[in-house]
Simulated scan of single mutants.
Amino acid sequence: MCTAVRFSNEEGFVFLGRNLDWSCGYGENVRIMPKGFKIPWAFDESTPAKHAVIGMCVEFQNYP
């Protein structure tokens, strides 16, 4: 089960938060991707990020 929240501020920016309600860690790390960051996909070409993102991820072979 996941818990999530989404809201917008006065400037129109959208914020989304989500967590995994697990009682143990699974190797998660903070990932910061600025706007335009090339996202390396495992099975497709790299794509520049449309938005800046700060979040948590689990990496596998350098892929989030």
Results as ranks from 00 to 15, higher is better:
Q61A: 13
G27R: 01
S8D: 06
N9F: 02
F15E: 04
V58M: 13
M56K: 09
V58I: 14
F60N: 11
F37A: 02
S23K: 14
F13L: 14
C24P: 00
R18F: 03
N62Q: 12
D21R: 08
V30L: 14
S8L: 03
N9T: 06
G17R: 09
K35Q: 10
W22F: 08
C2N: 12
F13S: 07
E28V: 05
D21N: 15
Y26L: 07
P34I: 00
M56F: 15
V58H: 12
C57E: 06
L16C: 10
E10G: 12
W22L: 15
N29V: 13
I39W: 06
G17C: 05
F15I: 04
N29A: 10
M1T: 15
P64S: 10
G12K: 05
I54P: 02
A42Q: 14
P40M: 05
R31G: 02
V5L: 13
W22Y: 07
W22K: 13
R6N: 10
E11T: 09
G17I: 03
G27N: 01
S23P: 03
W41T: 09
C2H: 07
K35A: 04
G12I: 01
E45N: 12
Y63Q: 07
T47A: 00
P40K: 06
A42E: 15
A4L: 06
L16D: 12
E59A: 11
R6H: 10
Y63D: 03
G12T: 09
H51P: 00
W22V: 10
H51Y: 06
G25A: 13
F60L: 09
C57W: 01
P40Q: 06
K35R: 09
V5Y: 08
R6Y: 02
G27M: 04
P34K: 01
P64K: 02
V53H: 05
F43R: 09
G27I: 01
A49K: 03
T47V: 13
G25F: 02
I54V: 15
L16M: 06
G55D: 14
V53R: 03
N9G: 02
